[in-house]
């Protein structure tokens, strides 16, 4: 078995009085889809933020590709997020002033890809996610499902190695939610990206290869022989 892509061990994190994570652990292999399940307030979003280097845990380590995110500088973690990770959130992630195409091109532009090339690649991803028609519209003018597909396109456009999706279908109805999940997991699989999928919905989690349950800040990693 090859070395895991992302490993977290002994993560502790509290926000003031609130304890969000207690000794949480997780490993993700190259290209696999892992669901992080838990009720609201269980600490699953915090776990995702720690894994993605957005939040620094109070204790513990997060190793991506042999490097510990916890000891990295802010700039290094920003660069890592820009280049190796992609993100899909529940809502409010698209910049309202930019067109959908520009939103998708944004991570590339942040990585200093020239505008023309960035927008061309962004266009291909919009096509891959079946939302070509919204390219020139602003996020306020598209439906929730289209917006989420644009967000998925944006998460994938840099060909990241891990995609972090936090309740990506939370604001969608089942039909649109299923479509987003299908496109997200297929596109991730095609480009070889691993997916960390935070959700409280079992049907969304069912798109994963395996699940991790977070309860009261602790992870329960039940490996059931398939």
């Amino acid at each position: 078995m090859s070395a895991p892509l992302l490993v977290a061990e002994g993560l502790h994190r509290s926000f003031g009085e609130t304890v969000a994570l207690v000794d949480a652990a997780l490993r993700i292999d190259e290209g696999e889809v892992v669901a992080v399940l838990g009720s609201s307030g269980s600490g699953k979003s915090t776990l995702l933020h720690c894994l993605a280097g957005i939040v620094r845990p109070d204790r513990g380590r997060v190793v991506f590709d042999g490097r510990d995110l916890v000891t990295m500088s802010d700039a290094q973690r920003s660069a890592l997020r820009r280049e190796q990770f992609g993100f899909v959130f529940q809502f409010g992630q698209l910049v309202p002033e930019l067109t959908c195409l520009e939103n998708v091109a944004l991570p590339l532009r942040l990585a200093r890809v020239p505008r023309r090339e960035a927008e061309q690649r962004a266009g291909q991803w919009l096509e891959r996610l079946e939302v070509t028609e919204v390219a020139d519209k602003r996020p306020g003018e598209v439906s929730g499902g289209q917006g989420q597909r644009v967000a998925v396109a944006r998460a994938l456009v840099t060909r990241p190695r891990v995609i972090f999706a936090d309740e990506p279908t939370g604001a969608l109805d089942s039909l649109n939610g299923e479509r987003v999940m299908r496109l997200l997991t297929e596109a991730a699989r095609d480009s070889g990206a691993a997916v960390v999928l935070v959700t409280h919905e079992a049907r969304v989690a069912a798109y994963s290869d395996r699940e991790v349950v977070v309860r009261d800040g602790r992870t329960r990693n039940l490996e059931v022989a398939a």
Partner: peptide, 20 residues
């Protein structure tokens, strides 16, 4: 309950795959 959950999810995953 956890074991049962894992079992349910396993089946759901299989059904999702079939659905696809």
């Amino acid at each position: 309950l956890d074991v049962q959950r894992a079992e349910h999810l396993r089946l759901m995953r299989e059904l999702t795959r079939r659905k696809r």
